[in-house]
Design a protein around this nucleic acid. Structure first.
Length: 517
RNA sequence: GGCUCGGUAGCUCAGCGGUAGAGCGGGGGACUCAUAAGCCCUAGGUCGUAGGUUCAAAUCCUACCCGAGUCACCA
């Protein structure tokens, strides 16, 4: 029994429509969760971050209230995740009562333990950009980005005593050098820590769209809770903090996925907030890279944003999932293009995998009446991947746990290649002509079982296509059953016994021709 | 400017003290069960530049060049 596994995505800030980057992070979380579910209890959380100035502005531009606006957008995000075959366990919205109530309770608790206090926030403020600037950042006394005059603002706000946690953070970082990955982000955060931390203002008096400051605070200290304070807490409010059963089961999180641009919030502020309410920091925060288009960051302003629904429609959701996880080492930026997606789809999925399934099933039909034969002697082919010391299932599970998706898929492809190679070396068409039925049957059995393994191994990555493989093989039972158990023996779990009738179907990954498409 | 991470075959990258590797692309070959797929053979690259340490350096040190990121209470 493994420890319950909890994986989160950032909650997405819905000032507009989702793009491929949002699908990316969420798919990664889904792969982790699906893989973990084969080993024990697992929980995947995603959701939307709906408060703050930008949402209020965007809603106003569309002539709607913020609530109307977010209610309209949230289904698009949920539709995106569905389109990418993501099965989350919960979807939290920061406008939900369960979240707002818990955030207020946390705020109140911190006010009582002294970590939240009323202070004065002062600084140079650019009204146009709605941004505070440090004196040192000003350009000749004017806003460095828009060049307009700035004004000195002074307001009473609630502050979180972040500075108090600096030493504990330093100690935590030193004791757990792997808790923030990749290493470059860890280093950045250590550098910030060594410079020191200032307390954080966590309320906004000039904004209405947010969670109200709780308590009898008429006069000073009114307003709403700063959106980041609110947003970070979703990871525990969704589980029913402080005493929900899910919270007790799944916290602390196993992996929290973030984009590297929000690392500061998740690796400095977030653990401090947790410690303030007596909870543990997450085990791992992993900051991944950007998806770029020929090196250019994706953004609406650059005009290179691509509709993620269109991509899933065109290439298939599972092919997109494969591409996103296979193309680059997880963590680093990677460049995306339709040519690259098509290449992965055609070469890896169509030629190597899809064609392997088809040629195998065709031979089972032609040479064995479409019936899975009896196994022969345990061959080196079948045993090679089941050997306990190099067990492919264990290797893949280990790599996925380490978020090395590309390496995991490469390992799986060793089996794809081995099966293709076995066909070419053993030449079943010759065995058939020469009437060597036993050899032929043994080979066909190994191929079918190898494909069954592939379906199981690939299921977390490509759930729908893997299920289709499973179906065409005629396999019984649930493909998403316990991974380790399914793979423990080469074909001994009964899901594909000799005598099974295979069910060849359409090509798994039909070739996509970009030019004439 | 400070700091961080990179600069290895056309492309994407692995290697991180001991005679330069993988995948893709490109070139050649034998086959036919298959989505003109698969299989086999083939790449000879000053490992950013210049020094240094070492019996020995992509692999350690120094300087420099180039690229990216970060040093902001937008999320």
């Amino acid at each position: 029994m493994t420890r319950p596994y909890y994986v989160t995505t950032p909650i997405y800030y819905i000032s507009g429509n989702p793009h491929i980057g949002h699908a990316y992070t969420t798919v990664v979380a889904d792969v982790l969760a699906r893989s973990a579910r084969t080993r024990g209890p697992a929980f995947m959380l995603t959701g939307t971050d709906e408060h703050g100035q930008k949402v209020a502005n965007a809603a106003a531009e569309h002539g709607k209230t913020p609530q109307e606006w977010t209610d309209e957008l949230v289904p698009r995000w949920q539709a995106l995740f569905a389109a990418y075959h993501v099965e989350y366990d919960d979807f939290i919205r920061t406008t939900q009562a369960r979240h707002e109530t818990a955030v207020q309770a946390i705020f109140e608790r911190m006010r009582q333990n002294g970590d939240v206090y009323l202070g004065t926030y002062e600084g140079w403020y650019c009204v146009s950009d709605e941004t505070f600037w440090l004196e040192s950042k000003l350009a000749e006394g004017r806003c460095p980005t828009c060049g307009r005059e700035v004004q000195w603002i002074s307001e009473e706000d609630w502050f979180f005593r972040l500075s108090k946690y600096r030493d504990r953070l330093l100690a935590h970082y030193r004791a757990n050098p792997q808790w923030v990955r990749p290493r470059s982000v860890y280093n950045e955060m250590m550098a910030i820590l060594e410079e020191g931390l200032e307390d954080l203002s966590i309320s906004r008096t000039n904004l209405e769209w947010g969670i109200p400051i709780p308590g009898p605070s008429a006069g000073s200290g009114r307003g709403v809770i700063y959106v980041w304070f609110d947003a970070l807490l979703n990871y525990v409010t969704a589980l029913g903090w402080p005493d929900g059963e899910r919270f007790r089961t799944f916290w602390p999180a196993s992996v929290q996925l973030i984009g590297k641009e929000i690392a500061r919030f998740h690796t400095l502020i977030w653990p401090s907030l947790l410690w303030s309410i007596g909870e543990a920091a997450p085990e791992l925060v992993f900051a991944h890279g950007w998806i770029t288009v020929e090196g250019q960051k994706i953004g609406k302003s650059l005009g290179n944003a691509v509709d993620p629904f269109a991509l899933a429609e065109r290439f298939g959701a599972d092919s997109m999932r494969y591409f996103l996880l296979r193309e680059a080492p997880f963590g680093s930026d990677f460049s995306y293009s339709e040519e690259k997606i098509a290449q992965r789809h055609n070469n890896d999925l169509g030629n190597d995998l899809g064609n392997l399934l088809r040629r195998t099933l065709t031979m089972v039909q032609k040479y064995h009446s479409g019936i899975v034969p009896e196994p022969g002697e345990r061959t080196s082919l079948s045993m090679r991947f089941a050997d306990p010391s190099t067990h492919l299932g264990e290797r893949v599970a280990g790599l996925v746990t380490q978020l090395q998706f590309r390496e995991a898929l490469e390992a799986i492809w060793e089996l794809v290649t081995a099966l293709n190679r076995a066909i070419d070396e053993r030449k079943p068409w010759n065995l058939h002509k020469e009437g060597r039925q036993h050899e032929l049957a043994a080979l066909l059995y190994d191929l079918c079982q190898g494909l069954r393994w592939l379906a199981i191994l690939l299921h977390p990555f490509m759930p729908e296509r893997a299920a289709e493989m499973w179906r065409q093989l005629g396999a019984r039972g649930r493909i998403e059953g316990d991974w380790r158990q399914s793979l423990a023996a080469w074909g001994d779990d009964g899901s594909l016994p000799p005598g099974t009738a295979v069910v060849p179907g359409d090509a798994l990954f039909p070739r996509i021709d970009l030019v004439s498409a």
